[in-house]
Amino acid sequence: MYTQGLDVKSDSDRAPPADTPTGPEERFQARVDAEEKIEPRDWMPDGYRRTLIRQISQHAHSEIVGMLPEGNWITRAPTLRRKVALLAKVQDEGGHGLYLYSAAETLGASRGDLVGDLLSGKAKYSSIFNYPTLTWADIGAIGWLVDGAAIMNQVPLCRCSYGPYARAMVRICREESFHQRQGYEIMLALSRGTDAQKRMAQDALNRWWWPSLMMFGPSDAQSAHSAQSMRWKIKRFSNDELRQRFVDATVPQAEFLGLTVPDPDLAFDEATGHYRFGAIDWSEFERVLKGDGPCNRERLEARRKAWDDGAWVREAALAHARKKEARAQAAAA
């Protein structure tokens, strides 16, 4: 569903200091500049590899953790059509997680280690999933806003310099835009519905608007990895550029729904052709990122419980595979 957090300053992950240009490094950059795709067996700088593993695995973790807030409403979806759509969406997210982990594995990471980092709390996932889904309208708002923001972030990743990631993103983006339309359609039904449904829709927009804007990461001035990632063509647009595009695209959609964006400073600027919006409360962003959001603990606990409860299943599958292999070898001998 979405990548973020990648641009947050972190001492251990700080981009390496300007490398002294060497032969392979220069050739690598020349290929990137020429818009060639870098493939798994190609030489690449360690920093490029580390950045991609971090970004791709954070994206994978986000898909997996993102299954929880939405999965929360599968058993309570209001109609069978909505239930089926939501099941399909959450299934897609699991699928995205699978192929993103595979993309990370092409860089030499192991899925087991990456998942271990998620469960231990070492790895980050998108903070947006640390907010609760309180009503059915939240499922609409997530599709519309969260997937909408994700698409803004991810469409440029289809042109990422690393081939396996770029190709995974093509498929993911196609599915995400379908999810976004579904989410908007949920909001549309609610905003055309009863007063209670309209209230539900407005309440969801009130709660998801600002966290959605935060999904683009810190402002360009604060972003730690941006410059290097841009040079490597992992990143194509700055956080603030993408955020602005999202606001410009989304505000008219909110108006069409008859909902009010919870920002008193929001105004269309005729001169620039863009919406100006109010200041983002970055202290909230930091707080949620550090683990003190509304649902951080619940999300990680749920992932850990699933993993721990499933240990006997994984052990049994492994034991069975070994027995089968031993039997096959004995038969062949």
């Binding site: 997996i64 999965g71 599968i74 058993t75 089926v84 399909a88 959450v90 299934q91 699978l98 994984r314």
Partner: peptide
């Protein structure tokens, strides 16, 4: 569908959700 997000392996999250989807269909 109650399993969604809580299965022993990611592959099973996808598989159980997929089967739930078929059944509700």
């Amino acid at each position: 569908s109650e399993w969604c997000g809580h299965a022993p392996e990611l592959e099973e999250d996808v598989a159980l959700t997929n089967i739930a989807l078929d059944l509700v269909g």
